[in-house]
Structures are given as C-alpha cells and as structure tokens.
C-alpha cells in the first residue's frame, strides 16, 4: 500500500505542477472537466444510466455562477456553490420524469431536456445574453482578493476540485453507493429487496447534476465568460466520451479521460481543423484496445496479477475482499 501512497503524492505533485507543464488556461480546463466527468460517472458508471444531457446542468451551473458574480458581485467560490445548487434544483423535475425510463429512452429524454434548456437560454437574452453569452465575469475571491492572476486562481481552485472529487468518491463508496451498484447489477432484485429504485436513481442523478453544476460554476469564473455553446449537446457528448475513455467506475478514470481529451484537442488543433474527427478516431481506437477505458483496463490487469500472486500464496478462507468490476 506504500505504492498507493506514493501514487497519490505523485498525482498531487503533477496537479500542482500542471500550470508549468501546460498553459494555465488548459490546466484549469483539465481541473474543471475532470470534476465534471467524475460527477457524470456517478450516474453513468455507478448507476448505469446514460445521460446525454449533462451539458444542461454544467451550463446551468456556469450561467448561474457567472450571473451571480457579474450582477450580484457574489465572490468565488460562493458563486460556484450557488451554481451547483441551481443545477441540482433544475435537475429534480427533469430527471424525475427521466428516471422512469430505461436504457436508450433515458438518454433520449435527457437529451431532449438539455435541448430545451439550450433554447431557453438562447431566447432569454435579457438574462443570458443569448448567442453572446455572459461576458466580463469578475474573478474575485471571498474577502475581496482579486484573482485576475490565472496562476493564483488555479491554486485556489485545486482544493475546490479536490473536495468535489472527494464528494463524488464518498457518494459511490457509501451505503447509498452500494444500492446504486445493486440497481445497476440487477434492478429487479433490488426492487424485490425493498429498494424504491426510481427514488435512488433520482437521488443519484440530482447529486451528479449538482456536482456537474459546481464544475460549471468554476469553469465560468476561470474563463470569465460563458458561451451558449457550453450547453450545446456536443458538451454532453464530450463528457460522456471522457468517462468512457478514462474508464467508468474507477476513481480517477474520468479525470484521466478529461485530461486526455483536452490535451489531444490542444495538440491536434494546432495541426488540423479536423481535430474533432481525429479525437473521435483516437477514441474509437482506445476503446477497442482498452474495453474498460484506460484506467479500468489497467486496474483489471493489475488485479488479475495480484490475484495470481495470491493464488500461489496460502490464503485465508473467508477473507472478505471488496469486489469491483
């Protein structure tokens, strides 16, 4: 387990050095999208529901946070937290309807709702600026400290994202998380054991959307503006791709996926305008080789090695090892 500790220290070091390895804007994008993707995975990986409308909640968080900062002078990170709450509140009525549907119907309903939100934001020009989005968002910390220096903003944001990711981790590794896994594994049996499955799915969705809204709330302050594109369905697709690429149902997979997609986009877009196509092709190739995403597949490999090692060693008969797929 020393290896694990070292791994965390290395990761911490990498996160702290990130603004020196890539430019600060990209480093911040990696942080926010990592949180967004991890939040989506609560629903996608751990609950087994494919949301194709998470842009709406990321966007709702971004618009709410940005507008509060711009018009209400609400400081960071209070505005981001408020954005999270707005996204969470918005998700209740929408997902209440969606969780009653399964499989592709769930994905379609979430997509339809996200499109609806897109049109509302586009039409409500007085509040949202329509196609122009919300611009000139101030970046001020609680207590009045000016954060226009992006490096400083990055280091203020690191602990916020860390807390957000920890909350995601806590949720899926709680008694509640256990029920989500049960629902994903065998919904009928979960119902027959007395779990009101729809209620659990709704709570899972609302938590996922709230945390996505938090990511959006950070994103808008980092960029100092939010564009209508943020709520476009392409955003929903991108975050799903990040989770699949990095590995569903892994602690760091979604974050790895987010970093990879953003880095690829950054590198490829200097070479070609068709970076979207190139990213897509790489996505397909990676998924074909790494069925469970990069982190998921690596984990599986390591586990089977560990298993082989344990098989050869004498084993205690009823050791209760946690099992994950």
């Amino acid at each position: 387990m020393i290896a694990r500790r070292l791994g965390w220290v290395a990761l911490g070091g990498l996160v702290l050095l990130l603004p020196r390895l890539v430019y600060e804007g990209l480093a911040l994008d990696i942080l926010t999208w990592a949180l967004f993707a991890t939040a989506l995975d609560i629903l996608l990986g751990y609950t087994g529901l494919l949301s194709f409308g998470h842009a709406a909640f990321f966007g709702a968080g971004a618009y709410a946070s940005g507008l509060l900062a711009l018009r209400g002078s609400v400081p960071y990170p209070v505005n981001a937290v408020a954005g999270a709450l707005v996204a969470g509140a918005l998700s209740v009525p929408l997902l209440y309807l969606a969780v009653r549907r399964r499989g592709i119907y769930f994905a379609m309903i979430t997509l339809a709702f996200a499109q609806m939100i897109y049109y509302i934001i586009n039409e409500w020009r007085g509040l949202t600026g329509g196609e122009n989005g919300v611009q000139g968002v101030p970046r001020v910390l609680v207590g009045g400290l000016d954060l226009s220096n992006l490096t400083m903003f990055y280091y203020v944001t690191v602990p916020l994202v860390a807390v957000g990711m920890w909350v995601c981790w806590r949720i899926v590794h709680s008694p509640f998380g256990r029920v989500l896994m049960a629902i994903r594994e065998n919904e009928v049996r979960a119902r027959s054991l007395g779990y009101p499955v729809d209620r659990y799915k709704l709570l899972s969705a609302v938590l996922s959307c709230t945390l996505s809204g938090f990511a959006g709330g950070i994103y808008v302050i980092a960029h100092r503006f939010v564009a209508l594109e943020t709520v476009h369905w392409i955003t929903s697709g991108t975050v799903v791709m990040m989770v699949l690429l990095g590995g569903m149902e892994t602690t760091l997979g979604p974050a790895v996926g987010a970093a990879l997609v953003l880095l690829l986009r950054d590198i490829l877009s200097t070479w070609t305008d068709a970076w979207g196509v190139a990213t897509g092709a790489i996505f397909v190739a990676v998924i074909l080789v790494f069925r469970r995403g990069i982190v998921g597949t690596l984990q599986q490999l390591m586990q089977s090695r560990l298993h082989a090692a344990l098989e050869s060693a004498p084993r205690r008969p009823d050791e209760a090892t946690p099992v994950s797929r």
Partner: peptide, 11 residues
C-alpha cells in the same frame, strides 16, 4: 441506503 455521506464500512 440514503446515507451517501457515510463510509460503506457502516454496513
């Protein structure tokens, strides 16, 4: 089952 803030070790 609703306690998403507790560690699963409570089980």
């Amino acid at each position: 089952g609703y306690y998403f803030w507790l560690p699963e070790t409570v089980l």
